[in-house]
Write a protein that binds this DNA or RNA. Sequence first.
DNA 1: ATGTAC
Length: 387
Amino acid sequence: MSQQPSPPSTPATVTVFASPTSWIESDAVAQCHQVAALDGMTHVAAMPDLHPGKGAPIGAAMTSTVLYPFLVGSDIGCGIAVFPVKLKRAVPEKLAARFPDLDRALDPEQDADDPAWDVVKGDIPAGHLEGLGTVGRGNHFVELARIGTVLEPDHASRLGLSAGDLVLIVHSGSRGLGERILRAHTEVHGAGPAPDPGAYLAMHDDAVRWGSLNRRLLAARVAYALGAEPTEPIVDQCHNLVELRDGAYLHRKGAAPGDGRDVLIAGTRGTPSYLVAAHAGPDAGHSVAHGAGRKMSRADALRRGRAKHTVEELRRTPVGSLVVCGDRQLLFEEAPTAYKRIEQVIDDLVHHDLATPVATTIPLVTYKTPDLGSTPRRDRRRRRGRP
DNA sequence: ATGTAC
């Protein structure tokens, strides 16, 4: 009996779930085809918010017979959660000033009395305390928003939502923990597959749990600071993770689980976001988009933004909301004009029958990092050096 | 997106 030849490796299929008129960078599509050519890949589903990432595209669900940690990236467990919040009045100017410093981690000893700890039930995953309760940088944020248009009243009602209700939207991940997990893999295996998927998955699952806990801690810190009670999230979906599904590894990078779940698809701080009922099938990698998707690189947004906008324009958005962001560069990088139109992304999902919009959320205050206030930078530095 | 090095 002759040796059976190994089956010819047919390249994985690549499907882009966007209309031809949607702006998708060719570099991002090229990245999808590079991923499709990896050993063991069977399918790449690109979402309408697809844009180029570091090595792998962002906004894609990638299926393979082997587990590639770099396809999930370093922010394992990153996701978006929505928490109902009850406030008597919601004046953006007043509330923006009350946000706590979310760059400062919760310290078990120093902050022992902080009531936000109550959301920790059981152990902290991986025992990782560094950065706990911090929002991070990049596209992460905590936003106070109000429900705008309700498009599916019955579904919204089941979630306890009506037009005008307030919610906290938290987009954050596993901070240093996920980064450490990916680095431990890449230092030895680079972009290669995990030789022991079970070992990677155990650490990965810790980071996914840590990310979700972090979003709850962030929401609780903000709720208390605004004079409200913390609540359970009505939506909490992680868009950077890998799962074993139907005998294959389904990697999601900037793609939210879309199999019969409710997902908050982030617009920008100056445009609505959409709460959708997702119903994506296998062709779409059981996934939907996670946001509007970047239209410009950070470098382009900074260069073009400086020519186009003043800092004051960026701190007060077209919908009348405020942005708390003491980091000038980040203010430009995350300008609404650096992102695609969220309506186009949602339309593409609807036309491909991947999701049904339930309600929009309209930003009131989007928090990124503490405001510097009017104190000149050098004075702050000098003061920090004092005992 | 990240912690850290420049």
